[in-house]
Design a protein around this nucleic acid. Structure first.
Length: 593
DNA sequence: GAGTTTGAAACT
DNA sequence: CAGTTTCAAACTC
């Protein structure tokens, strides 16, 4: 990777063809005895809101004094600079954020830090374009650019356009990195000046119309994500059926916003249909959705799963008849009238789904089962379980300590080893605390983004982080304020030391209890599903006879939950030790989780 | 992997 | 705003 130095004041569009000999180093001024320049540089740096890759000496860390010289947490503090370095060999516990990270993130003072950078940001190393392992182990394509002339500071560069630093790209003369944040900032400003929406998702949720405008028929068709290209494409030769086309790439239909020629990316297009025909269809669909998600080209609406998209589309149909701009009324009508659909193979499941009355409202099977009070009850129950687990653990711990006291007298030689262990425990403690008191962290912002990295491990730029920092701060403040068994500044180190184990025990118990509840919930859902299926079969001998009121077919009335559904928060029956096999996915939110 | 095609972005 | 150029990804061979 070629990395060039660049004056921070250089305009984005006027870069020298070759990199400068050295880049602007905010620290150099300090050392060269120019405090004024240093102050200016510091101000600039602060304005740029770059996150400091270092620990502040004044940062409060609740560890033993003798442990401070240990430089262990340092690598974890620099996710942006070395996002792919497989460090953490010292800590098997890899769940972010660490104690120090929490402090850094929760303390405003720790964010902009134009002081000495302890570790020089390393230029992203070129890596072959390959699969990138996500946290769940699913290999996903990591997007990396190959820019040569744009310095990765123009929208040509996908990384820049996505608002992320280049990391591991094959680009040359890259300025889209921490080292050149000033130049990058200028480029962002210049880009925004040209187009204030330059960094917004290109695919919006039908900005110039309602969603149903570009909704298409479900029958035997590829089901695109809902959305529209805000600007529309201008394709001429690709027929909007190649990835040159931004609409196609985002897996959406061309809309009235497009000015494309000879467009084939519309509802009912034979070419489009042929393109997705065959076994490749799903693969391509998923790949496109993934690409779109990776590219950040689409908004959250576009990130819906295919199933969600399907539901959305179907339900949208209930909103009214839509006519695509491409004028495919005959095709649409044909399908709406339930005429045979000339599709087979992998599309059959869609066809079958489409044979179900076209106007269906989807309701989660558990919608009548899970009530607000149930959730409250569950929370209470888990709190009780947690408390009991802590008590039980304390009892066991006391017994253990009595035993170990006798043995300790003969094991003084192992003291140093124990110190290290204590240190690790102390470091891990806040993570455990975070887990027990703030599981919402993962849900709200995603554990992978907490430390300033995207899910694929790529560093996010300060601009991107700035959009999230408030949320992060709130999250961490919340979690630090959350229910803890130990005062935040306790000096009882022995007590602190045992906390991770207590938390682990509590977490275990809580999760087990929660699992039991989920099992019951699943059982309830299945019962309800079966009931629904049975009554549906009895009451509706043929699907065409299903009465549709206002275009909505409502499922048969389901008796009250009290009579039908076992209470979720009752003691677990003895035969529930095995997780029930869910043969069909539960609709609604649960399937997402 | 090199060369070509393509369309968005940038520029005039 | 339209035409042209630049650019990098997609595509082809």
């Amino acid at each position: 990777m070629e990395q060039g130095g660049q004056s921070a004041a250089a305009p984005a569009g006027d870069f020298p063809p070759k990199k400068l000999a050295r880049q602007l180093d905010f620290t150099s001024a300090t050392y060269s005895g120019n405090p004024a320049l240093a102050a200016t540089a510091a101000a600039v740096s602060r304005a740029l809101q770059t996150r400091p890759p270092q620990i502040q000496p004044q940062t409060t860390i609740h560890v033993q004094p003798q442990q401070q010289p240990q430089p262990k947490p340092l690598p974890q503090l620099q996710p942006k600079l070395q996002p792919v370095v497989p460090q953490q060999n010292h800590l098997p516990h890899v769940r972010p954020p660490t104690l120090v990270q929490q402090h850094l993130l929760s303390q405003p003072i720790a964010r902009p830090m134009p002081t000495v950078v302890t570790m020089k940001p390393e230029s992203p190393k070129p890596r072959p374009r390959s699969m990138h392992e996500m946290k769940d182990g699913t290999p996903t394509k990591k997007k990396c650019c190959n820019c040569r002339h744009s310095r990765c500071l123009k929208l040509y560069c996908e990384c820049f356009a996505s608002g992320v630093y280049c990391d591991g790209c094959n680009c040359t003369n890259c300025f889209n990195n921490v080292e050149n944040e000033a130049a990058r900032r200028d480029a962002v400003d210049a880009t925004l000046e040209r187009n204030p929406d330059a960094f917004r998702p290109k695919i919006g949720n039908s900005p110039h119309g309602t969603i149903r405008d570009n909704v298409q028929e479900a029958v035997g068709e590829l089901l695109p994500l809902v959305g529209k290209h805000n600007k529309g494409c201008h394709c001429k030769k690709s027929g909007c059926l190649k990835k040159y086309c931004e609409c196609f790439q985002a897996n959406i239909l061309c809309s009235e916003n497009c000015k494309c020629m000879d467009c084939k990316n519309f509802d009912g297009s034979e070419e489009r249909r042929a393109l997705y025909h065959g076994d490749q269809r799903n693969t391509m669909y998923m790949q496109q959705a993934a690409n779109a998600a990776i590219n950040g080209a689409i908004g959250h609406a576009g990130l819906m799963s295919p199933s969600n998209s399907r539901k959305r589309k179907t339900s949208d149909l209930a909103l009214g008849q839509t006519i695509h701009r491409m004028g495919l009324v005959p095709v649409a009508n044909q399908q709406r009238n339930g005429l045979p659909i000339p599709h087979s193979g992998p599309l059959n499941h869609l066809t079958a789904a489409a044979m179900i009355p076209s106007k269906v409202t989807y309701r989660p099977l558990l919608s009548d089962i899970v009530q607000n009070e149930d959730v409250k009850e569950l929370c209470k129950l888990l709190v009780v379980v947690s408390g009991e687990a802590a008590k039980a653990f304390a009892g066991r711990k006391a017994q253990k300590e009595k035993q170990s006291e006798k043995e300790d007298q003969t094991e003084s030689s192992l003291a140093s080893t124990k110190d290290n262990k204590e240190e690790d425990s102390a470091i891990q403690k806040p993570s455990a605390d975070d887990r027990s008191s703030g599981t919402h962290v993962d849900e709200a912002s995603g554990s992978d983004t907490v430390d300033g990295q995207k899910a694929d491990g790529r560093p996010m730029s300060p601009s991107t982080l700035a959009l999230m920092c408030d949320e992060e701060d709130a999250v961490f403040m919340e979690s630090s304020r959350g229910p803890t068994l130990v005062p935040p500044h306790t000096s009882n180190f022995a007590f602190v030391e045992s906390m991770p184990e207590v938390y682990a025990e509590q977490e275990k118990c809580v999760l087990m209890e929660f699992r039991e509840c989920l099992r019951k919930l699943v059982t309830c859902g299945r019962m309800k599903e079966e009931r629904f299926a049975t009554s549906f079969r009895v009451e509706t001998p043929s699907q065409q006879d299903i009465p549709a009121t206002n275009g909505v077919v409502k499922p048969p009335a389901i008796p009250s939950k009290a009579a039908q559904v076992p209470p979720i928060l009752r003691p677990t029956p003895s035969n529930s030790t095995k997780l029930p096999v869910v043969t069909s996915p539960l609709p609604g939110h649960l399937d997402k989780k």
